[in-house]
Simulated assay, not measured.
Amino acid sequence: MTGTGKAENSETPTDRQRRVWNKIAPSYDRQIAFVEKIQFGGGREWLGARAHGRLLEVAIGTGRSLPHYPPDITVTGVDLSPAMLDIARQHARALGRAVDLHEGDAEHLPFPDASFDTVVCALSLCSIPDPATAIAEMKRVLVPGGRLLLLDHIGSTWPPIHGAQWLLERITIRAAGEHFTRRQLPLVRAAGFQVVETVRLKAGTVERVHAVKPG
């Protein structure tokens, strides 16, 4: 028992995220389908409509955005969880879509500078341990003028809902590293992106961001 406790205590936030996502991968699509329809409906279509060129999806998960990308773009995906990537491969094959998938950390993307025209991150910055570092990495791998497209749940603009989100976080941060009161837009601006378009929905709990890396 003592040895197990030491092992758990030495687990890094990134290791924990990999463990959590590997565990839930087999049931993820079934669990998230209803939530996406009600809370994030149209979000992945919004991302796909703005994607172009060489695209990298950070934290691609099971590949739920793949059906919404234009057929003339090249898609690369990276995810921390090999179990999630296995399902993404199955989805790509079913769609007849060539996708280059890599196991990797959003905070240390395994790609050279200026490799992509578009970087997408959907429903993932809420649980990436250091979102500011991840956004800096997304900027690094974008070409000058490249597009950053984000979709996520964020802290509500309505105090009663924000308070409920804060209470929920007391459980979800410890269990799965998931935050409900984060907001990514200030981090995008702090990283030096030019914000082109933002949309807030669902009492301010959902945000879509389209930003550009300066040329």
Rank of each mutant, 00 (worst) to 15 (best):
G63S: 07
T62A: 04
D79L: 08
E103C: 15
G77A: 05
H68V: 08
L85W: 04
P71G: 11
L47D: 02
I87D: 01
P67H: 02
D86R: 15
V75I: 15
P82Q: 02
T76W: 14
V58D: 01
R50T: 03
H102V: 14
L101R: 12
W46E: 01
R64Q: 13
D79N: 08
T74I: 11
P67R: 00
E57G: 05
S65R: 09
A83E: 13
G61E: 02
D100Q: 14
I60C: 04
E57A: 07
V78M: 02
A92D: 04
H91D: 13
L80D: 03
H52D: 15
I73V: 15
R50A: 02
L66A: 11
R54Y: 08
L85M: 05
H52E: 14
A106M: 11
G104P: 00
G43W: 10
L85F: 04
R44D: 03
L80E: 04
S81R: 02
G96R: 11
G53C: 07
A83R: 12
R89T: 09
G63N: 06
L66Q: 09
A94N: 07
G41Y: 08
R93F: 11
G96M: 13
V99Y: 09
G48Q: 05
L47Y: 06
G104S: 08
V78P: 00
P67V: 00
P70W: 06
R93T: 13
E103P: 01
F40V: 08
A83W: 12
